[in-house]
């Protein structure tokens, strides 16, 4: 039990993104498919069909605050991360760190922390971004619509083979 908790903490807390959302505007090169597996623990990695989303959306800005070579479009970020400066990264994780509210930051705030205390962590940045849009466009919103549970996940949610005896259940969203 303790171990599961520990793994969860490391899994969810550290949040290292290995694949980048390498995105450009239509003029740029972008990958057709991105495997997002840094957070994979309770769920399998997500194989993200980037090409399909490029087709389905009007502009990169529907998902990204900015692309490489353009300034940040978020008015709050742009206040400091000067609008004039072109960004050379587009990956979520470059700005959305795993743990913005770290214990150290809480007790000894780093300079500038004050401006970042309401920045979603990486996991939330993904989910808020994806789910938020999916809700509007009636895309899939169920957890397992995007990523299947791992065995650790089944155990954690007490589903599948770990389901409680009594529950003759049906799950689904």
């Amino acid at each position: 039990m303790v171990n599961v908790g520990k793994r969860l903490i490391t899994g969810l807390g550290v949040l290292v993104l290995t694949s980048l959302f390498t995105v450009g505007c239509f003029a740029m090169d972008y990958p057709d498919e991105v495997e997002i597996d840094s957070l994979a623990n309770l769920y399998e990695a997500v194989v993200f069909d980037h090409a399909m989303h490029v087709d389905a959306t009007d502009s990169c800005a529907d998902c990204h605050h900015h692309t490489t070579g353009t300034p940040s479009s978020s008015e709050y970020c742009a206040k400091c991360h000067d609008g004039a400066v072109e960004m050379d990264v587009v990956s979520c994780q470059d700005c959305h760190s795993g743990d913005p509210v770290s214990a150290e930051n809480l007790h000894n705030p780093q300079p500038g922390y004050f401006y970042h205390n309401d920045k979603p962590n990486l996991k939330a940045a993904y989910h808020l971004n994806c789910v938020g849009c999916h809700q509007e466009v009636d895309g899939p919103t169920g957890c397992e619509d995007c990523h299947a549970k791992t065995e650790a996940g089944e155990k954690y949610y007490r589903s599948g083979e770990f389901a409680p005896e009594a529950a003759a259940h049906s799950s689904g969203h």
């Binding site: 039990m1 969860l8 957890c143 549970k149 954690y156 007490r158 529950a167 049906s170 799950s171 969203h173």
Partner: peptide
């Protein structure tokens, strides 16, 4: 309901009546 599952694990609570991904 991930938070419910997390609490159950963290606080070593007894098995729930239904799985935590059961939205009924």
């Amino acid at each position: 309901r991930t938070c419910e599952a997390a609490c159950n694990t963290e606080q070593k609570l007894p098995e729930p009546a239904k799985p935590f991904d059961d939205y009924s």
